[in-house]
């Protein structure tokens, strides 16, 4: 009897250790070139369309309940006439040492073998712990079961669950598209090719600022891009080891706030 308890305890504890996943099938990575991003917001619309994100309305937006899994942050420096405006798209960073995973009491968020930080809606009991632990403020909570007035519901993507009240959600790197690409690759008896998986944001980007791929594939575009000297990761000093890599914006003021 005691043996079983110990085994369960050990298993659970292993999920508490950062980097518990040992060998990954893929390591999905996104590279965001901030010098190409022009802040237009097309990626946000793509995300809304692909992932069945509900529209919450003015009141709830005012209570910070807007759902966009991907947001574009905008920073304004300086006084007129020397004003510098900067944009940065921020989505779930799919940290390899994710604070949210450590926090969840029911293991609803964990790392899978694709290097993705995933959220299991059916397990989530809505304690909000992950959202408070998250360094990047990318987790969104379903305060209500949102309804789509007819016939807007006809647009809903059948590949993605419509989440209900009380669960946490966040960017999945469009896992349904990853699944579809793997499915297709399996049918054709091959591995997933570089460029075959395109999350909705990367697909729609009018400037091609977002690039997605498998870091473990040495031939992939992202594997080549991560050697770029402009590379940095968001709030890297917090040691969350994010899977989203940003390339610094080229800008006249040069001196970024280090």
């Amino acid at each position: 009897m005691a043996g079983i308890f110990d085994k369960v305890k050990d298993t659970l504890n292993s999920y508490r250790t950062p980097g518990y996943f040992k060998k990954l099938d893929h390591k999905w990575t996104m590279v965001v070139d901030l010098d190409m991003c022009n802040g237009c917001g097309a990626c946000v619309a793509g995300c809304y369309a692909e992932n069945n994100l509900p529209v919450v309305g003015k009141e709830d937006c005012g209570k910070s309940r807007a759902f966009s899994w991907l947001r574009i942050e905008r920073y304004v420096d300086g006084e007129y006439p020397d004003v510098k405006v900067k944009f940065i798209p921020v989505m779930c960073q799919h940290c390899m040492k994710a604070p949210c995973e450590i926090g969840c009491p029911v293991y609803a968020t964990y790392h899978n073998q694709d290097g993705l930080n995933v959220q299991v809606y059916n397990r989530c009991v809505g304690t909000f712990t992950c959202a408070t632990y998250c360094t990047y403020d990318v987790r969104r909570f379903n305060w209500f079961s949102y309804k789509w007035p007819k016939p807007l519901d006809q647009q809903l993507n059948p590949d993605v669950t419509v989440r209900e009240m009380g669960v946490m959600e966040k960017c999945t790197f469009c896992i349904q598209r990853i699944t579809a690409a793997k499915d297709k690759a399996k049918d054709e008896g091959r591995g997933v090719k570089d460029g075959e998986v395109l999350p909705a944001c990367c697909q729609s980007c009018p400037t091609n600022a977002l690039v997605f791929g498998d870091l473990q594939d040495p031939e992939s575009r992202v594997a080549k891009m991560v050697n770029n000297p402009r590379k940095y990761r968001l709030l890297e000093e917090l040691n969350t080891d994010p899977s989203v890599i940003y390339l610094k914006r080229v800008m006249n003021d040069g001196k970024s706030e280090e």
Binding site: L34, D77, N252
Partner: peptide, 12 residues
């Protein structure tokens, strides 16, 4: 940005 270095830049 309040010194958080969110959008980092390099000069041309």
């Amino acid at each position: 940005e309040l010194g958080r270095g969110i959008v980092k830049t390099v000069s041309p």
